[in-house]
Amino acid sequence: NQASVVANTLIPINTALTLVMMRSEVVTPVGIPAEDIPRLVSMTVNRAVPLGTTLMPDMVKGYA
């Protein structure tokens, strides 16, 4: 099973992502692959992402 990116904290809308905000976890449904974490750093989220939420491609500006 592939690990996905999961919010390690509440990420407010329009926040630039940092490494400490994200962790990898095997979850269903599958979200952004964990190997993309380095690429996500400094990208911003377009909605509030609660703790434990899987990051989906449409949640990160410029990812999809």
Rank of each mutant, 00 (worst) to 15 (best):
Y63Q: 05
L51F: 10
E25G: 08
S24C: 05
V20R: 12
M21P: 02
P29A: 04
T54G: 03
R47K: 12
P57S: 10
V41D: 03
G62M: 09
T15A: 08
V26M: 09
V5L: 03
L17F: 02
T15P: 02
T53V: 15
R47F: 15
M56V: 13
R39Y: 13
T28P: 00
L40R: 00
I37V: 08
A48N: 10
V60I: 11
L19H: 13
R39T: 10
V60Q: 01
P50D: 15
A64Y: 03
T15R: 05
T9G: 10
T18C: 05
P12W: 03
A64W: 03
T54F: 02
I32C: 04
V60S: 01
A3G: 06
M56E: 14
V20D: 14
V41L: 12
A16Q: 15
P38M: 07
P50F: 11
V60R: 01
Q2M: 12
L55H: 00
P29E: 07
I13P: 12
R47L: 12
P12Y: 07
V5A: 14
K61L: 10
V45G: 01
I13K: 09
M43P: 01
N8Y: 03
M59A: 09
V49W: 03
L51E: 12
Q2F: 12
I32T: 01
A3F: 10
N14H: 15
L19K: 11
S42Y: 08
G52T: 02
I11S: 01
P57L: 04
V41A: 08
N1L: 13
N46S: 15
T53E: 11
T44N: 06
M56R: 08
G62T: 04
V5W: 02
V27T: 12
V49N: 01
V6W: 01
A3K: 06
L19A: 11
M21R: 03
M56D: 05
I37H: 02
V41H: 05
T28E: 15
G62R: 05
I13R: 07
Q2D: 15
S24A: 13
P33F: 08
Q2H: 11
G62D: 13
T54R: 03
P33E: 05
P12D: 12
G52E: 06
I37E: 01
